[in-house]
Design a protein around this nucleic acid. Structure first.
Lengths: 137, 137
DNA sequence: TTCGTTTTTTGTAACGATTACAAATGTAGA
DNA sequence: TCTACATTTGTAATCGTTACAAAAAACGAA
């Protein structure tokens, strides 16, 4: 089964009608793991979806987030970024070059006794600092 | 030494001139650990600082954050919240009542091998879910 | 103290990401 | 095809935040 078909199946399984903008946006997120912003996605897809509206990108990402297809990551910027990678991982933001990196994270190793009173649904570990490249300068 | 004096000392130690708005804002943060927003602080202090400007609150909090007196926490909202509690802890946001809770967190228990390439300066663990009160409904 | 300089505060205007909303378009089923 | 519903679109509004320059306050030297 090819990628486009898998994307459609995934969407239908989550009660999302696989319209053209939606499948393109989801495909873009699957193929670009660099945590794009709404604007990045919008600009990238304009050439293939002539009439695409930015509102559609917003609507679609809100829908995806709601249905659990993607995660919104807000790491100190004012604009949200989106991530189709659902496996547990943290985000590192370099304060010098502003790039965002994924890093491996094993939630099981964390002592989360402090959360015993809560029903936790979603974990976001955001770390800021200096990335490898920027350390050399 | 009384609180006001300790606040002034703390500020001067961090190269922050202890002006009236600054000391009041810092004091407010020390006495209100519920992660207030800029607007909350602004409204609360208006009665005692007649001419206070919202810009001053923004400026002051940016300065405090820069000097390491407070931490800005951005937990999925568009507006930042501020926390004068510098001891390591996580933030839990209830998706039902939108309240934000602190929870104890031992960073040493986390396997952060994935960060070995980076120089980490700042950790933010944000968890979303349902708080104790909202579970009962 | 007084003058001149620097820092801080203030108010207004601008910015930018996001949302509201209603019209237009597309889609599915009878 | 017709009808009902879902989706997309464009524009306008919202709202937290920032830019900026003027006003006010604090400081240091003479």
């Amino acid at each position: 089964m090819d990628l486009d078909q898998r994307i459609k199946d995934k969407m239908m399984k989550n009660n999302i009608r696989p319209s053209m903008p939606r499948t393109r946006i989801y495909k873009y997120l699957l193929e670009h793991r660099n945590h794009p912003t709404v604007d990045t996605i919008y600009k990238a897809l304009q050439s293939e979806l002539f009439s695409l509206s930015k509102t559609t990108v917003y609507n679609t990402l809100a829908l995806f987030t709601d249905k659990g297809l993607v995660r919104a990551i807000g790491i100190e910027d004012k604009e949200l970024r989106y991530d189709a990678d659902l496996h547990t991982h943290g985000h590192f933001k370099c304060v010098k070059c502003h790039a965002i990196f994924d890093f491996e994270l094993d939630l099981d190793t964390i002592n989360l006794q402090g959360l015993s009173q809560f029903i936790a649904e979603d974990y976001h570990l955001n770390v800021k600092g200096v990335c490898r490249n920027c350390q050399e300068v």
